[in-house]
Amino acid sequence: MLQIRNLKCYYGGIRALSGVSLSVSRGELVALIGANGAGKSTLLQAICGLSSSWEGEILFDGKSLAGLKPPAIVARGVSMVPEGRLIFPPLSVLDNLKLGAYLRYRQRDHVGVSQDLEKILDLFPVLRERSKQNAGTLSGGEQQMLAVGRSLMANPKFLLLDEPSMGLAPLVVRKIFDTLVQLRETGLTILIVEQNAQAALEIADRGYVLETGRMVLAGEASQLLADKEVKRAYLGKDYSKFYEGRG
């Protein structure tokens, strides 16, 4: 569904990605992990058209996304849950969700939108309870649910998530990740970008590891979870032993 070949991205004068390749097949849940500054968000912004200074090839459903603006990419069926959620705090929860379906309202797909709205409110009942409230009054976890719900309102074929676990309690992270598994079962293709390697790899089919702009590892999620390098770098296994030994 998504193929990226030899992608190079620039952040001003700095090269944030130097020749990254990645692919996601239909129905897959793929995790992209890496530390701060590895270039994960840059990669997502390139896919969504939020950054246009990239070289290489990004194909979605066999067609290039080069030169397209974000709205055109959303119209193709790619929807992103941005880093830091970026919900619209002064707007009500309901208006936030409706904004996710902006392009579909324009196509006069009112019936489809209201059906999806019901589905999403069923998926996240807490959003139904708070539908009239300003989004800014929600807790962090609820805001993340809202951000996911808003992305789903675009009725995407492909969902991108940028650090959905950021700043959330482990229990909330679990809940959101469970939802992602549920969504994958309905046939949605998902790419999740995470620092929380453990949580992401546990639900993913496959994983990629990005380090300072290069793809250093790729493979089945279970393999990556067992990989010594990944353990050392992202799961902090030997560090915990180290500290426990001292305690």
Binding site: P70, P82, F88, P90, R150, A154
Partner: peptide, 14 residues
């Protein structure tokens, strides 16, 4: 209203 709050976020939803 979405643009008022964040143009990038507004753009990301289409």
């Amino acid at each position: 209203r979405a643009i008022h709050y964040s143009e990038q976020a507004a753009s990301a939803v289409g």
